[in-house]
Design a protein around this nucleic acid. Structure first.
Lengths: 249, 249
DNA sequence: CGCCTATTTGATCTGATTCAAACAATGTGG
DNA sequence: CCACATTGTTTGAATCAGATCAAATAGGCG
């Protein structure tokens, strides 16, 4: 069950066995959330971090007019909450999209982790940097693409990230969201999501039934989306070995 | 001239005199950029970081259809480039909006800084976290607000951030952008930016001439924008003293 | 002055919203 | 195992916010 989590931590950093073990030892205390449940809410000052082990979650902000803007989907291996370890007050809410299993880690344990393995702060920092890159891409997506390629891009991103943690095949993955949630993520109405989904289906670029998405022609879909995965910074572990160590000494 | 920079570093962390001095010593080598010039481009693998000392800059991504999506404006004191210190490849471009003065810092010096003052990595991490929060808010802005409040929100954010580094008064600040750039930031057409600006002017909520913005009724503008500054995490230094130290030991 | 760039205006068109209702699917208890 | 309730998807029609196109005006500046 921790597979995805460890795969995620592995990407982009070369960790020692001791560091790997230290991280794994944090994931002992877990909680379940039901689909639709809020794990944490905007304005809170949490006392512990969250790591998603199983299921699909999202970050969102409530909008004045009763709506919701989703700003990211999170998948197994992702830190759901690490911001407030440094920033204290949470500036957005975190919700379970499907049923979720989540590890909770008191801040005090993070303190001890980083004291014992200072190098790991770099790994956490790296994670935050990638987070930022994903949000930037989301801005591009919502700000600059029409609804069809916007949807395509969102799907390509989710697919690529699930693939990175071993939860997708080359052309298929589990993505249990409602069309309403898709709309809240893309900043378009539910009705229009439906029409965009249908458009992609008719072009033979997408199948999407009961929470399972399939890309009949992955490359054409990525092309329509203008999807370039660079921003996800999912690096091949082999390429990195030795690199950081040069710098970090 | 370094005032804004130091003010920025000061927020949210309590630094020792030695740390402050170490940071200041990084800002010795500077470069000038003309308005409209790219400082770094998407896909590059920079060898040094950038800190903005003077002027206005932005991050953007070129869109397939020849457009540009701006995803943030940066002001004096901001790290323009720190991502690639960890992530290597830059996933967006950085451009001077007005004439800019920028400090360049070779990665090797960052290495040495962090070796000498490991605590500072936490400050850099913090900065990255806030960056992420700003991008998230940008997603909300572009995804969930209509053009008038979208513009209002953008202006409120810029104003608040300039205020934090001593570059704005309560109701006035220098913001030398064209309406085209505003459109690229908000994901709307130039023509529509113009109409939105006029709408705010007519309601007596905005004056905007030759790069100088003024808020005749700041509170009403913030209300229209739905602006809540929490996400900027501009904390009163007094409140923080002693807090981090408890945790960090 | 004359050039170039930025702002403004008007007219027309369109992608997306909204409202309202029908139609699956899925789950629940009797 | 069926009847009913609930939640999600689909469809159609009317409407609107914002885009597009094209041209006029206004500033700044060598």
């Amino acid at each position: 069950m921790f597979d995805s989590v460890l795969m995620k931590f592995e990407t982009g950093m070369d960790l020692s066995d001791a560091e790997r073990a230290a991280i794994a030892s944090l994931l002992t205390s877990t909680v379940q959330f039901k689909a639709g449940q809020d794990m944490m809410e905007e304005g809170e000052q949490p006392t512990h971090c969250l790591v998603l082990l199983q299921g699909l979650a999202c970050r969102y902000r409530a909008t004045p007019n009763g709506g919701r803007q989703i700003m990211s989907f999170q998948m197994p291996g992702d830190w759901l909450e690490l911001h407030s370890y440094i920033l204290r007050t949470l500036d957005h809410s975190i919700r379970a999209v499907s049923d979720c299993q989540v590890a909770t880690i008191p801040y005090a344990r993070i303190d001890r982790l980083l004291q014992a393995h200072p190098h790991l702060m770099r790994a956490l920092w790296r994670d935050t940097l990638i987070d930022g890159a994903v949000f930037r891409e989301w801005v591009v997506n919502v700000g600059a693409r029409d609804s069809k390629s916007r949807l395509a891009h969102l799907l390509c991103e989710v697919h690529r990230r699930l693939l990175a943690v071993g939860l997708a095949t080359d052309d298929e993955f589990h993505f249990p969201v409602t069309q309403q949630e898709l709309g809240e993520a893309m900043g378009i109405s539910t009705v229009h999501v439906n029409r965009s989904v249908q458009a992609l289906k008719e072009e033979g670029l997408l199948e999407f039934k009961r929470g399972v998405a399939r890309f009949p022609q992955p490359e054409r879909l990525r092309q329509l989306a203008g999807f370039n995965e660079t921003y996800l910074h999912i690096e091949d572990p082999d390429q990195i070995s030795g690199r950081q160590s040069v710098r970090v000494a």
